[in-house]
């Protein structure tokens, strides 16, 4: 049956169905362990309110972390690279054509002379 065959990748293999079964088994085990825990959740009490050291809860818009605040550290660490690569996308048509012609010339040198 070809549907359940593993994907051979040269040196290894990959069988998504076996993987899925393993994940399901693990999920069942996790569920069983979780069942044994103590149910301490009480709806409608102060237990469900966000706890911010007694401060009032901020407005909804203030809670959401917006996209440009994410990965600040990553971008800051690679500043040297990004300071070069981002301005390279100048948006000027002439530069884009020049990149194209330059790459063609570079390929020409590589293919014809090597």
């Amino acid at each position: 049956m070809t549907l359940v065959e593993s994907l051979s990748t040269g040196t290894g293999f990959w069988n998504p169905l076996a993987w899925l079964i393993a994940v399901l088994v693990a999920a069942v085990i996790v569920y069983l362990i979780r069942q044994r825990g103590e149910s301490g959740y009480k709806k409608g009490t102060t237990q469900t309110v966000p706890f911010i050291s007694g401060n009032p809860e901020p407005e909804k818009e203030m809670v959401h972390v917006r996209a440009s605040n994410l990965y600040w550290g990553y971008l800051d660490a690679l500043k040297g690279y990004y300071n070069f690569i981002v301005p390279a996308h100048t948006g000027v048509l002439n530069d884009y054509v020049l990149w194209y012609l330059g790459t063609t010339a570079a390929l020409f040198v590589v293919v014809v002379f090597i």
């Binding site: 996308h89 948006g91 000027v92 048509l93």
Partner: peptide, 8 residues
């Protein structure tokens, strides 16, 4: 040079 509102 001025038609570059799309960049980066």
């Amino acid at each position: 040079d001025e038609i570059r509102r799309l960049r980066e």
